[in-house]
Amino acid sequence: MSVGMDDVERISQLAKLRLDAEEKKKMSQDLTEILEYFAQVEEVDTSSVSPMFHPVDTDNVWREDAVSDAEMTSEVLREAPQTSDGFFVVPQTVTGAKEEQDE
């Protein structure tokens, strides 16, 4: 499995990372080398085996959907880069909606 520059570009978009030209080249080399090593697993027939996603086969753990630790709101928000009136603030994500309605 060779991971080319196009693959690196595609994966980095999925991962929301931007790599410069040099980083891309290094990433392509590193991922290719790592996946070549991983290719040895192909020799093991796993077709009849169920995948193991977790070491403990426990049932889901449920709890009441109740508010707790509500008094911590300000402490939690303290660490956010930008907040307003108890909300996290992000750059505007919806644009033009009102104008379109008005037309």
């Binding site: 991971v3 693959d7 690196v8 994966i11 980095s12 999925l14 991962a15 990372l17 790599l19 980083e23 990433m27 590193d30 991922l31 790592i34 991983f38 697993v41 093991v44 796993t46 085996v49 169920s50 995948p51 193991m52 996603f53």
Partner: peptide
């Protein structure tokens, strides 16, 4: 970044079965 890239690749459409699922089956064995 390298590990996020590797993981994103192993979970991405077209590679999930050959990489992530294969690894999870191997883990069982």
């Amino acid at each position: 970044k390298r590990r996020i890239m590797l993981g994103t690749f192993a979970l991405s459409a077209g590679y999930y079965e050959d990489y992530y699922l294969k690894a999870a089956r191997l883990r069982r064995m």
